[in-house]
Amino acid sequence: MKRFWDAADAVEVEGGFTVHLDGRPIRTPGKALLNVPSLAMAEAMAKEWDAQDKEINPETMPVTKSANSAVDKVTPQFAAVADMLAEYAGTDLLCYRAAQPVELTNRQAQRWDPLLEWCAQTFDARLKPVSGIMFAAQPGESLIKLSAVVHAMSPFELTGMHDLITLPGSFVLGLAAIRDYANPDDLWELSRLDERYQQEQWGIDEDAEEMADTKRKAFKHAYNFYQMSKA
């Protein structure tokens, strides 16, 4: 698709904000009007459209892509997406600990236990760490309370929350990101604790590290998108 407009502007509309291309509102791939909850998000999208050259490259428009997903994909199946994300609390990365070596198990306890305690105190939802990879059921009341958190979000917030949970494989890390427990880069590093330990023993796999960096950038984008989703 070639560029067909001269100017992209963030404008206020009924119920939110959008981007106008030469005075015409943009639409999603599903042909819905792309109205977003905040001026900050509309301005970010306008910059993406303005930055396009002769041909449009969607890969350089992450905010617009996420907003499209919020309207076309998340909104019509909101409950199913929220339920899927809530399931991560039952198998949270931070709860599954190595049985050995002691150095790794100590590192996991030192860096992950404070997050589980924070979750217990902040959401009245305690999750229990276990040793090994076999499934262990978490307290039902805790899972209900954590599920309610994502079900109370807007479709745009849930869109950001999706990658904040699924990329690290941790519901708790996703919550920690949106509550500013720590900055996104530090939280991402916590999700890679096991990988970092293996690198110390065997060296760095460049391909794996490149893939992890791509995911880190996507995690940070999801955090920024969530923040912009606040009306």
Rank of each mutant, 00 (worst) to 15 (best):
P101Y: 06
I165P: 07
L175M: 15
P139Y: 06
G90L: 00
D194G: 02
N35R: 14
T122Q: 12
A51P: 02
W112S: 08
G174P: 04
I144W: 02
F17S: 07
R192F: 02
D186H: 13
T214W: 02
V130K: 07
K54D: 15
V19E: 03
A46N: 05
E55F: 10
A176S: 11
P101T: 11
A212N: 15
D92H: 05
T18S: 14
A42G: 14
R192K: 14
Q227H: 10
F78D: 01
P76T: 11
G174A: 13
L116F: 07
A218C: 06
G169C: 09
V172D: 05
M84Q: 09
C119Y: 03
N35I: 15
N35F: 01
N35L: 01
A182M: 08
S142A: 15
F123K: 08
L146P: 07
V19P: 02
R3L: 01
A231G: 15
Q77V: 09
N57F: 04
A86P: 06
Q110M: 06
E103H: 04
A176I: 07
K31P: 00
G169K: 08
P58F: 05
D22H: 08
D72I: 02
A70N: 09
F17Q: 06
G15V: 05
Q108P: 08
P76A: 08
K230R: 15
E103L: 03
Q100S: 15
D9A: 06
T105G: 02
Y88K: 04
E59N: 07
T105D: 03
A46H: 06
V71F: 00
A70S: 14
R179T: 13
A152T: 12
Q199V: 11
M61D: 10
T18P: 01
Q52I: 02
Y88C: 00
A137L: 01
W118C: 03
M84A: 15
D186W: 03
T28Q: 03
K215M: 13
E189I: 08
S38Y: 03
N183C: 06
T28V: 02
I144C: 01
G160I: 10
V74T: 14
T91M: 04
A176T: 10
V172K: 04
K47W: 02
V63I: 14
L187C: 12
K215R: 15
M84P: 00
F135L: 02
P114Y: 04
A89I: 06
D22W: 00
G174C: 09
V81G: 00
D6G: 04
M153R: 03
M153Y: 10
A10V: 03
A67K: 06
Q198A: 12
A177G: 13
D83A: 12
G169N: 11
Q201T: 14
N224H: 11
E59S: 12
E59V: 10
H151W: 03
P139Q: 06
F225P: 01
E48R: 03
W112P: 04
A182N: 15
A136W: 00
G30Q: 09
L116E: 11
N35P: 00
G203R: 13
M61H: 05
A89K: 04
I144R: 09
G203T: 12
A152F: 04
S229F: 07
G140V: 01
V130S: 13
L158D: 06
G23T: 15
N57C: 05
